[in-house]
C-alpha cells in the first residue's frame, strides 16, 4: 500500500525548516525555491507565540518520506497508508 507524509501535529512545529531542507537535499538542491514543503509563519495578535502552518505538495510522497519524518525534531509528521489519509 502506498505511503504518504502527513503533518499531523502542526501545533508542534517550531519553524526550523529542517524538513524543507531535507526534501530539497533529496532533490539535489540547497535553497527554498521549488520546495515541496513550505513553512508559513502566522502571528496572531492575541497570542504570545507564533504558529506555523505546513504546506506540502503531493509530490513529496515520491521522496524518501521517512527521512523527512525523522529529521523533524518535534515529531510533526506521520507516515500513513494512502487510503487512511484519504479517509482521514
Amino acid at each position: 500500500m502506498a505511503k504518504c507524509l502527513k503533518a499531523s501535529f502542526p501545533q508542534k512545529c517550531i519553524g526550523c525548516e529542517l524538513c524543507v531542507l531535507e526534501a530539497q537535499r533529496q532533490l539535489k538542491k540547497v535553497g527554498l525555491e521549488g520546495a515541496l514543503i513550505r513553512i508559513l509563519r502566522n502571528k496572531k495578535d492575541d497570542k504570545e507565540f507564533l504558529e506555523y502552518s505546513i504546506d506540502m505538495d503531493a509530490r513529496i510522497n515520491s521522496l524518501d518520506i521517512e527521512s523527512i519524518r525523522s529529521v523533524c525534531p518535534t515529531e510533526v509528521f506521520e507516515i500513513l497508508n494512502e487510503d487512511a489519509h484519504e479517509l482521514g
Binding site: 517550531i14 519553524g15 526550523c16 525548516e17 529542517l18 531542507l21 507564533l50 506555523y52 525534531p73 518535534t74
Partner: peptide
C-alpha cells in the same frame, strides 16, 4: 536545551 519555542532556520533546538 531542546524546547518548543520558535527556532532559527536550520536549527532543531527550539
Amino acid at each position: 536545551e531542546h524546547g518548543f519555542f520558535p527556532s532559527c532556520s536550520g536549527c532543531p533546538m527550539g
